[in-house]
């Protein structure tokens, strides 16, 4: 698990910098207007990049939550239940965010 957390962490440092620069630092005023958000997400490359960021950040976050809970000392059975809950939660988060960005793009 450590290696996945490390690899996703390294990937995140790159994706987060790209996300912050693209969404804030190169945008006039630092925040996109409604039309600007739709235009931005309508680019297939950006959509793929933001979706990759979403998947990596969600999995990194939930693996971190598991690491903290494991430190509290839980049984293997409880860990199996925890993993199932976190995987389901991760799937819901990614599905919701992809639906949200997809529905925004369809308005373009």
């Amino acid at each position: 698990m450590w290696i996945w957390q490390a690899l996703s962490g390294i990937l995140l440092t790159v994706l987060l910098v790209v996300h912050m620069v693209a969404n804030h630092f190169v945008v006039e005023g630092g925040l996109r207007t409604y039309e600007d958000v739709i235009h931005y997400l309508s680019n297939p490359f950006i959509f793929a990049l933001e979706t990759a960021f979403l998947i990596v950040v969600t999995s990194h976050a939930l693996m971190g939550v598991r690491a903290i809970i494991l430190d509290l000392g839980i049984s293997p059975a409880a860990d199996r239940r925890l993993k199932a809950v976190l995987v389901a939660l991760g799937a819901v988060i990614v599905a919701y965010a992809v639906w949200l960005t997809g529905s925004v793009v369809l308005r373009a």
Partner: peptide, 12 residues
């Protein structure tokens, strides 16, 4: 992360 996704739901 949860707060950010909740806030972005205003786009919808």
């Amino acid at each position: 992360l949860f707060l950010h996704l909740t806030v972005l739901s205003t786009l919808a």
